[in-house]
């Protein structure tokens, strides 16, 4: 009984310590086989990662698989995260997005999605609301809505539908080079607007 209390106390101390840990410190602790560090990373980021996966693969079970894969990869290969190159959040979200897109492209997920989507699969405002229902997302929503429409549509098709820019160009009936340029200029504009709004990359 005494040991159980001690264990609980130690666990509480560890968790409170980790809650203040930076991304780099957290990942270093993960590299030292600290399950509680992975748990803290999960606590911080699992929700958005799951939300993105579910949004993309449109399937609860597959989204869970993606989340599981993302965090197990962090556990088995923490060296892939470089704190000098961005936040842990963007690292995990990028991995989640990439893996989800792989699934969409590789199997019938896309077909399932397309069966449930409208003929023009532009994300609807309601879906956007679902994706962005957090305080900080207000900045993102505002910034995205302020983009010139061609840029916004190109980014939405590419990011939320998991399509290549070539596919987006085909859907929109635009030259591929134009779509590439719109994605780039839109992202740069978004980045600038987020920074102007005080949203610092890497800070959740």
């Amino acid at each position: 009984m005494f040991h159980l209390e001690q264990d609980r106390l130690r666990r509480r101390i560890m968790l409170s310590d980790l809650r203040d840990a930076s991304d780099a410190a957290l990942v270093l602790a993960i590299a030292r086989y600290r399950n509680d560090a992975l748990a803290e990373a999960y606590r911080r980021h699992a929700g958005p990662v799951f939300g993105l996966a579910r949004r993309l693969v449109n399937d609860q079970a597959r989204a869970e698989e993606v989340v599981q894969e993302v965090f197990l990869r962090l556990w088995s290969a923490p060296d892939r995260f470089d704190p000098d190159r961005g936040s842990l959040r963007s690292f995990l979200m990028a991995h989640c997005h990439g893996r989800s897109v792989d699934l969409i492209r590789a199997d019938a997920a896309r077909r399932r999605r397309e069966e449930t989507e409208s003929a023009v699969p532009t994300p609807t405002p309601d879906l956007m609301e679902e994706v962005w229902d957090v305080a900080l997302s207000g900045f993102v929503r505002e910034a995205l809505s302020e983009l010139p429409e061609p840029e916004r549509v190109a980014i939405e098709h590419a990011y939320f539908s998991g399509r290549t820019y070539r596919e987006v160009a085909e859907i929109l009936g635009e030259p591929e080079g134009t779509v590439k340029s719109r994605i780039r200029s839109g992202l740069r504009r978004l980045r600038d607007q987020l920074q102007a709004a005080g949203v610092t990359p890497g800070v959740v």
Binding site: N35, L38, A39, Y42, A46, G47, P48, V49, F50, G51, L52, R54, R55, Q60, E64, V67, Q68, F71, L72, G86, S87, R89, S90, M93, A94, C96, H97, E130, V131, W132, D133, V134, L136, S137, F139, V140, L144, I155, Y159, F160, L187, L190, R191, L194, V199, P201, G202
Partner: peptide
């Protein structure tokens, strides 16, 4: 990628038993 991470950010909550499966 930082911008993209913001784009995909949501208030979704992961299923309660998912962490247990990972752990």
């Amino acid at each position: 990628r930082e911008v993209a991470a913001w784009l995909g950010y949501s208030s979704a909550v992961a299923p309660p038993d998912l962490w247990e499966r990972i752990e």
